[in-house]
Computed example of a mutant assay.
Amino acid sequence: MRAGEDILGVWRCFDGLPMDNLVKAWHYEQAGVKKQRSVEEMREHRKAYGLGGNCFDLALWLLTDFRAAGIEAYPIGSKLGTEQGHAAVLAIDESGRRFLCDLGDQWIQPILAETQDEAFLDAPQQGFFPGAAVQLSAEPDGLTVIYQRPGGKLSVQKYSLDPVDLSEFWQAAEYSQHQLGKTPMIEVRVAHEGELAHWEFNSWQSELSTTAGLINEEPAPSLDAWIERIHARSGYDRDIVEFALAFYKSLE
């Protein structure tokens, strides 16, 4: 079941907004003690440099825009305060139905998260996640999403649907901004042969996930070539991409 136009209207403003750790590495050096950007900073960086952010950045930004539009919403997460922490948002429509909104994992659109709707939960759903069908499973402590990709590959994401206190969520976001990782990564939804596919650069490899299967791209022959490929896919400022890639190269 798809969300109404009020929720979708806000969600669509984030189309094409990447999730990555490149912005994290770039901003870390210039930030003060606190590394988590304000929503105002994120908007400024998007306008000036084309930037997105990590899952906490995107969740905080989306949450702010939902509330500004008069839509009830709250932050959720899993493994908050750890290196595996993940952030998303639940938005509530006028009838009280909750929709999972996960920009960090690059969903195409929000999906109904009501665990009592067994008919919806039991069947794989198309058109919500790029390059995969999704099947939702109700759990005593939340919701499990099973991603079913071409060729039979499965992956899993678990969510608690309990609201996270906003101050606690900001603390978890701050912790996440200090975890830079060891390799560069960026993901973005891109148009590909009539569908929205999932493009990912990770550990100096890039690939495109489509409903027809995984397309592995040829490795770029140089750092400059990687900069151009990432810029072309994401729209990120070349200088910022170069800074972030050089930072991760220095960790090798």
Rank of each mutant, 00 (worst) to 15 (best):
E94A: 15
L100Y: 08
R97D: 15
Q106V: 12
L112N: 10
D105Q: 13
Q106R: 12
D102C: 02
D102V: 00
I111M: 12
I111Y: 09
E118R: 07
G104Y: 02
I92F: 10
I108N: 05
E94N: 15
R98F: 01
Q106C: 13
L103H: 06
S95Y: 11
G96R: 11
G96M: 10
D93A: 13
S95E: 15
E94H: 15
R98I: 10
A113E: 00
I92W: 10
T115C: 06
Q116R: 10
E114T: 15
R98H: 10
E114F: 03
F120L: 07
Q109K: 14
Q109V: 12
C101M: 03
D93N: 15
E118Q: 08
R97T: 14
L100A: 10
R97W: 13
A119W: 00
E118H: 06
A119G: 02
G104N: 08
F120H: 05
I111T: 10
C101Y: 01
L103V: 02
F99Y: 13
D93Q: 13
L103N: 04
D105S: 14
S95N: 15
F99C: 01
Q116M: 04
D102K: 02
Q109D: 06
Q109H: 13
R98K: 14
C101W: 01
V89L: 01
L112Y: 09
E114H: 09
R98P: 04
C101A: 11
A113Y: 01
D117Y: 04
G96Y: 08
R98Y: 01
I108Y: 07
Q116Y: 06
D105P: 09
I111W: 07
